[in-house]
């Protein structure tokens, strides 16, 4: 892989973000809205429920982590969609850049976009609701890495769909994460799900990530085995995502859709 080319492709997206205030605002806007929404909902539950001592902290932390996943996947999809919308797709694919370099550039640039959205929201939660996600401590780093790998994987799968089916797949890009949210057990323990659905849910890294987050926040215990399991599952999905991306790319070359993909 050529670092210069990965940098060049990242630079294209950095220029795009840097040159547009509405884009930066958009990146910050949604995570912040999430924090407000879930902050007030969980505050209400705290005042009217005795389930958790720290309902606000748990639900808000879950919201922040879920948003991190959401942003990382959407950032990945968005950067790919930008190429389609701007009809730059052909130019990109005839440049001497490997598919692995395109994936690497999108993966590294997505973190930049994700953090622009997440950091202000996470910081805002501290004075507003007295909730700091950083209280999770060292495990937070591993949870974020796992979420990021899985977010990028979802991005890879959606972009594979975009290559395979064209821009008409765009709606799926937006809907993909909402589809997984109920199974991810983000705001509730996995035991809430029916037994048969629990088996399916546990095949997703999300269950392990959010279970562990609650474990740390409620019991103040870190189960690194659970974290490792989440990382391994995410990584398996990531490899699967890469394989699907390559297959879609080869399929698009066979169908001739790369040459005139646009709006």
């Amino acid at each position: 892989m050529n670092i210069d080319k990965i940098f060049a492709l990242s630079l294209r997206h950095v220029y795009l973000i840097k040159g547009s205030f509405p884009r930066i605002l958009d990146l910050i806007y949604w995570p912040t809205i999430q924090i407000f929404l879930w902050g007030f909902i969980s505050k209400f539950f705290t005042l009217n429920s005795s389930y958790f001592e720290n309902t606000v902290g748990i639900i808000l932390s879950a919201a922040i982590l879920y948003d991190f996943l959401f942003r990382s996947s959407i950032s990945y999809n968005m950067m790919f969609l930008e190429e389609i919308w701007s009809r730059n797709f052909t130019n990109l694919f005839i440049a001497p850049i490997k598919i692995s370099e395109i994936i690497a550039a999108l993966t590294f640039t997505a973190i930049f976009r994700t953090l622009i959205g997440l950091v202000p929201a996470a910081l805002l939660a501290i004075p507003l609701f007295g909730v700091s996600i950083f209280k999770i401590g060292i495990p937070l780093i591993f949870l974020l890495i796992t979420l990021y790998i899985f977010g990028v994987t979802l991005g890879l799968l959606v972009t594979s769909g975009l290559i395979r089916f064209g821009p008409s797949f765009e709606n799926i890009a937006w809907a993909s994460l909402f589809f997984l949210a109920p199974l991810g057990c983000i705001y509730y323990p996995v035991e809430i799900l029916p037994d048969w659905l629990q088996i399916i849910a546990k095949l997703l890294p999300l269950v392990h990530i959010f279970e562990e987050m609650r474990n740390v926040l409620i019991h103040d215990i870190v189960n690194y085995y659970q974290i490792l399991k989440a990382i391994i599952i995410s990584f398996i999905y990531f490899v699967f995502g890469i394989v699907i991306f390559y297959l879609s790319y080869e399929g698009a070359k066979n169908r001739g859709t790369l040459i005139n993909m646009g709006e």
Binding site: K5, A8, R12, Y15, G19, N88, L92, P96, G262
Partner: peptide, 19 residues
Amino acid sequence: IELPKKLSVKQNLEVYARL
């Protein structure tokens, strides 16, 4: 086919020169 619309001409040329 086009170059990214939101980038300036210079930015586009620079990105492609690097690629």
